[in-house]
Design a protein around this nucleic acid. Sequence first.
DNA 1: TTGCATCCGGTACCCCGGTACAGGCTTACG
DNA 2: CGTAAGCCTGTACCGGGGTACCGGATGCAA
Lengths: 134, 134
Amino acid sequence: MAERAGLNVQTLRYYERRGLLAEPARSNGGHRLYPDGTVALLRVIKAAQRLGFSLDEVAGLLDGGHRRPAPDLRQRAAGKMAEIDRRIAELAAVRATLAEVIEARCDSLTDCTGAGCPLPDLTGEPSATTEATR
Amino acid sequence: MAERAGLNVQTLRYYERRGLLAEPARSNGGHRLYPDGTVALLRVIKAAQRLGFSLDEVAGLLDGGHRRPAPDLRQRAAGKMAEIDRRIAELAAVRATLAEVIEARCDSLTDCTGAGCPLPDLTGEPSATTEATR
DNA sequence: TTGCATCCGGTACCCCGGTACAGGCTTACG
DNA sequence: CGTAAGCCTGTACCGGGGTACCGGATGCAA
């Protein structure tokens, strides 16, 4: 199974523990007998992960989807998209600050000689300049 | 010290272990006596962290900055910016796919009835449709 | 001097998504 | 029937950034 799905055996068992895979039937000797469609299910799980859902969230999506025809997926996708937008915005802000650091030719975290170095602001330091400007 | 810097005491000791703070002098009884400027240093560390540097990277930046006048900071900031650009690009791709999922009105991860549902593609599933279209 | 807050070192635990290893049992193939 | 490959459970570990708890020692003020 693991081979067919391109996953580690331990990962399958991990998913089982996390509730993503139902406990499968067993052979007399105790070996897991996976039902048809398990490969497809695992691919769905990986796809959902790539969309930014955590394993717990994927478990919820799978459980919900089986019982109700629920518009849950759409709702959760929308929520996830908002979350991703927030993360993108954060990263964009960080990126902008890094650009300033580079542009100001900052040369040290602690004693930057560059003009317009944005580092003092970032530290929340109550500098003379900051005080004076308000 | 921890109180003045707004950090947990354990965090200070953790930074010491990680090499971000030099081992401070001790009182007779063994209590740490932090030198002046430690609050400022901790603020710098937090600022660098906000810029996306890991603790190891911050340690490197601090060490380097003390000895050489090195343009290291600029170089590393540029590298970090590229890294952040990559992460933003990944998130943008995920965001786009989520938008498709929402637009196609997908209702289930496993049995989506929406037209143009992008999920099959994501799973890497060798579907009949996919086969036919090439 | 006494009392209480705080610090000390050491160790263990948190989240997240897995991965590895040990020691033993089962299954499939020849 | 023998043997090797593969599975079984249980437990421990990875990385990153901390946090919590323990028993004991210290520091400072009244």
